[in-house]
């Protein structure tokens, strides 16, 4: 599924959180959104799964305006793995994954054979079949994240939206999730904190700063020491690892020749812009 984000702006509480972002994600590609906290990654993603309505601009799925479709229709092609939500712990794994079919349900909420097959497939893919009857609340963080991924996959999405999918996960589980996602034949847009993971898994990287898109392209072109330095306020060294860029980062020091205290690392205005 092709995703077109065209000149989208979002205002929350009077603040421009996303400003005039235009971004095209081609069908079948993996796009990573990177940027510091508060740069608008999650907000931009929320507009794509209709949790937020932009104040201006349009979002199109395969050329169709997202907000011109009924909610269920829009959700049918889009699977979402949100940042962890502390709800639904009382449901079993199977019940939770079945919720991924919500947008496909008929008036009477009955599961069709297709629905059941999709749920079984999602459980299989995520290796959760043996856990089907366990309560979500009793699982570990990594397992729970897999349940939520399975829920997203149960809708058989053609566009998968991942908001910080690797948060709170150890290294192995981070890789598990992203490997799994990359092997799917779907378009992926993922907000990622780790530049290394972004460079490793994404076809293109979009860099956001203060709600604006500052760069978009293949990781090697976009994640340069200059851009990273500019956006994250750090000193970055990029070195190639197996054809992909790898990063060594350290705090940027604004007080040359002196020990690098906190006050030397960040400019006051940068602190402010991080606040939201």
């Amino acid at each position: 599924m092709r995703l077109d984000i065209d000149d989208v702006s979002v205002t929350l509480g009077g603040q421009d959180v996303v400003a005039e972002v235009s971004l095209t994600v081609s069908s079948g590609t993996f796009t990573a959104l990177v940027g510091p906290n508060g740069s608008g990654k999650s907000t931009l993603l929320r507009t794509v799964y209709r949790a937020l309505r932009p104040v201006s601009g349009t979002i199109r799925l395969d050329g169709r305006d997202l907000w011109s479709m009924p909610a269920a229709h829009a959700a049918r092609g889009v699977g979402v793995l949100m940042q962890e939500q502390h709800a639904g712990f009382e449901f079993t794994v199977a019940e939770t994954v079945a919720l991924g079919r919500t947008a496909h349900l008929g008036f009477f909420d009955r599961l069709t054979t297709t629905d059941r097959a999709a749920i079984a497939e999602a459980l299989d893919r995520t290796g959760l079949a043996p856990y089907a009857e366990r309560r979500v609340g009793g699982l570990s963080g990594g397992e729970r994240q897999r349940v939520l991924l399975a829920r997203a996959l149960a809708g058989r999405p053609r566009l998968l939206i991942l908001d910080e999918p690797t948060n709170h996960l150890d290294v192995r589980h981070q890789l598990d999730i992203l490997e799994l996602v990359r092997d799917l034949d779907v378009t992926v847009v993922a907000a990622l904190h780790s530049l290394d993971l972004a460079a490793t898994y994404a076809d293109t990287v979009a860099v956001l700063k203060e709600g604006r898109l500052v760069a978009h392209g293949p990781a090697a072109d976009v994640l340069t020491p200059t851009t990273i330095g500019e956006v994250f306020q750090v000193e970055a060294t990029v070195h190639g690892v197996g054809g992909r860029p790898g990063f060594v980062l350290k705090p940027r020091c604004l007080c040359p020749g002196r020990p690098c205290h906190w006050s030397c690392r960040t400019r006051p205005e940068a602190l402010l812009s991080d606040a939201h």
């Binding site: 949790a51 959700a75 889009v78 709800a87 919720l99 919500t102």
Partner: peptide, 8 residues
């Protein structure tokens, strides 16, 4: 948030 994402 979640139910919106699920199309409800």
């Amino acid at each position: 948030e979640a139910s919106a994402a699920l199309g409800l």
